[in-house]
C-alpha cells in the first residue's frame, strides 16, 4: 500500500506539472462554456440561461477528457520508460495501472471543481441548489469512469497513438449520442433509443431531472451505470495489463 501511495504521488506530480494539460483541463472548459453560453445567450429567456445549459452539457463533455489524460499519463513517451522501471520493481502490477486511474481522477476532480466554482460565481450556472451534492457526486463518479476508460483502452490497444485516435472517436460519439451538442429527440425514436447507450445520456438526463424537476428517480440508476462501467473498466485493465508491454 505504501508503494501505491508513492506511485500515485509521482503520477499526480506528472499531471499537475504539465502546463498544457492544466490549460486543457482548466482554461479550455472555462472558455468553452463562456463562449458557447455567450453566443447562444440571446436565444434563451431569463428563467433558464444558456449558461445553465452549457454549464452542465459542456462540463459533462469536459469530463470525457479524463480518458485522454489517463491514457497519456499511462503511455506517453515522457513517462513510459520510467514506468518500465516500475515493472521491474517489487510493486504489484495492479498498482501500476490503477494509480494512473486514481491520479487522473484526483487531477480531473480538482480542475473540474475549480472550473465549476468559477462558472457558478461568474455566470451563476444552476447546479441544482440544495441538490448540488448529488450532482457533484454523480460528476465525480463519471470522472472516475472516464479515467478508468482511458487506461482500459491503453491496455487493450497497447499503443498511445491508436488509443488517442480511438478515444477521440468514442468520446465524440458519446457526446453526440448523449445530446450534449444538440438534442437528438428531433431525429426519431430509434436514435433516441440508441442514445441511451452513451453514458453521457445517463449523466445528462439525471442532472437535468434533479436540477429542474427535483426528481431523483434517474439518479441511482445513473450512479449504478457509472459504478458498473468503472468496475468493468478497472477489471478489464487488470486482466489485460501486461508489464512486458513496457519493455
Amino acid at each position: 500500500m505504501d508503494n501505491f501511495k508513492k506511485i500515485l504521488g509521482m503520477d499526480l506530480f506528472n499531471l499537475f506539472t504539465n502546463p498544457m494539460w492544466l490549460a486543457y483541463a482548466i482554461v479550455f472548459p472555462l472558455v468553452l462554456v463562456l463562449v458557447m453560453g455567450f453566443l447562444t445567450s440571446a436565444s434563451y429567456g431569463s428563467t433558464v440561461t444558456s449558461y445553465d445549459y452549457y454549464g452542465i452539457a459542456m462540463m459533462i463533455y469536459i469530463i470525457f477528457n479524463a480518458a485522454t489524460f489517463s491514457a497519456n499519463g499511462f503511455m506517453e513517451e515522457r513517462v513510459k520508460n520510467p514506468n518500465m522501471r516500475l515493472v521491474y520493481s517489487p510493486v504489484k502490477p495492479f498498482f501500476i495501472h490503477f494509480s494512473k486511474v486514481l491520479a487522473t481522477f484526483v487531477f480531473c476532480s480538482v480542475t473540474f471543481t475549480l472550473v465549476g466554482a468559477v462558472l457558478y460565481l461568474v455566470v451563476g450556472v444552476n447546479y441544482g441548489g440544495g441538490y448540488f451534492g448529488l450532482i457533484y457526486l454523480l460528476m465525480l463518479l463519471a470522472i472516475f469512469f472516464f479515467s478508468a476508460l482511458g487506461v482500459m483502452v491503453c491496455c487493450v490497444l497497447r499503443s498511445e497513438n491508436s488509443t488517442n485516435q480511438l478515444l477521440s472517436i468514442i468520446l465524440t460519439l458519446f457526446g453526440v449520442l448523449g445530446g450534449l451538442f444538440f438534442p437528438l429527440d428531433g431525429f426519431g425514436k430509434a436514435i433516441s433509443a440508441i442514445s441511451w447507450m452513451s453514458p453521457a445520456k445517463w449523466i445528462f438526463s439525471a442532472c437535468m431531472q434533479i436540477i429542474y424537476n427535483r426528481d431523483i428517480s434517474m439518479y441511482l440508476p445513473a450512479c449504478g451505470v457509472m459504478v458498473m462501467l468503472s468496475a468493468a473498466a478497472v477489471g478489464i485493465s487488470a486482466k489485460l495489463f501486461k508489464g512486458e508491454d513496457y519493455i
Binding site: 445553465d52 445530446g179 444538440f182 438534442p183 438526463s205 437535468m208 424537476n213 426528481d215
Partner: peptide, 18 residues
C-alpha cells in the same frame, strides 16, 4: 414537430432541448 402529451412535460425536457 408536435408531440401530443396528456400532461405538460417536466422542465428538464425543455432545458435539455427535447
Amino acid at each position: 414537430n408536435v408531440t401530443r402529451l396528456d400532461k405538460a412535460p417536466p422542465l428538464s425536457d425543455l432545458v435539455s432541448g427535447k
